[in-house]
């Protein structure tokens, strides 16, 4: 069976982003970009399923600008077999619904039995695309997965929920989104990076898939979060307790 793994190119998680002074967005020019951490976990899981023999082909997909090819090469260096880039102009903000529609078109074309996505992208923090794709394709969903097991025509997903863990059984084809604890993604090695350069990477346009990617949500303004007032260092526990009791009045 085939697995489709959508991956997103985002600002590296270690970068502290700055809001542009004109309030139009955050400044991502000349900032280090990487694969969204949850998507690395998704690729790793797909590759592990292949190594276990449950999966025959892993296809990585990304939607966005030309540079997303680098992200797809990384996915192929982890072990994806081939990649597809749905290339969109840099001036269009791709929102989850549009991405879900592009992915739906690719699912219709490729017929994967499983789609594994990250639970959320660390830039827009939406946590929507997987669920939306499941809705559009009529597939069941296993979100926030910390364990995935394929048996016959079902996949059993253990999910991280508030208060603990929950296990659901889904009929294939299904959509799974990864949580942090699903696995530890492997490091890509130089030989694998070289090999990934030779793997197939197809580039298509949203129009080829018949999808309108016009944003539905308009960003009016992006601002800095309110700053916290400067704090003080206290010399000892007694002072701390006194401050909490008398100044902050929280205990």
């Amino acid at each position: 069976m085939k697995v489709l793994v959508p991956v997103k190119r985002v600002v590296d998680y270690n970068v502290k982003v700055r809001v542009k002074s004109d309030g139009t967005g955050v400044d991502i020019a000349n900032v280090k970009m990487s694969m969204n951490p949850f998507d690395e976990i998704a690729v790793e899981e797909a590759v592990r399923l292949k190594e276990k023999g449950a999966v025959t082909e892993v296809i990585a997909v990304s939607c966005g600008v030309t540079q997303c090819q680098e992200t797809l090469r990384t996915a192929m260096a982890i072990g994806a077999d081939r990649a597809i880039l749905v290339e969109t102009p840099a001036d269009i903000e791709l929102q989850p619904l549009a991405v879900a529609k592009l992915l739906k078109a690719l699912v219709d074309k490729e017929g994967p039995s499983l789609v594994i996505l990250g639970k959320q992208a660390i830039d827009d923090d939406c946590n929507q695309t997987g669920q939306m794709l499941a809705a559009l394709t009529g597939m069941p969903q296993g979100t926030f997965a910390s364990k995935v097991e394929i048996a016959g025509d079902k996949v059993t997903v253990t999910r991280e929920v508030d208060g603990g863990l929950e296990t659901v059984s889904l009929s294939l084809p299904a959509v799974v989104t990864t949580d942090l604890r699903l696995n530890e993604p492997r490091y890509v090695t130089l030989p694998n990076i070289m090999k990934a350069k030779k793997k197939q990477l197809d580039i298509i346009k949203p129009a080829d898939l018949g999808v309108d990617v016009t944003p539905r949500i308009k960003t009016l303004k992006v601002s800095e979060p309110p700053k916290r007032g400067a704090g003080v260092k206290v010399p000892d526990v007694a002072t701390l307790v006194a401050k909490l009791k008398n100044e902050a009045k929280v205990i």
């Binding site: 600002v11 502290k16 982003v17 809001v19 955050v26 660390i122 830039d123 827009d124 923090d125 539905r216 949500i217 308009k218 960003t219 009016l220 303004k221 992006v222 601002s223 800095e224 979060p225």
Partner: peptide, 16 residues
């Protein structure tokens, strides 16, 4: 709504 791990606040308008 907050974006980028709460490092920016976006004001957004929905046309739906």
């Amino acid at each position: 709504r907050p974006i980028y791990a709460g490092n920016a606040i976006a004001t957004v308008q929905s046309g739906d």
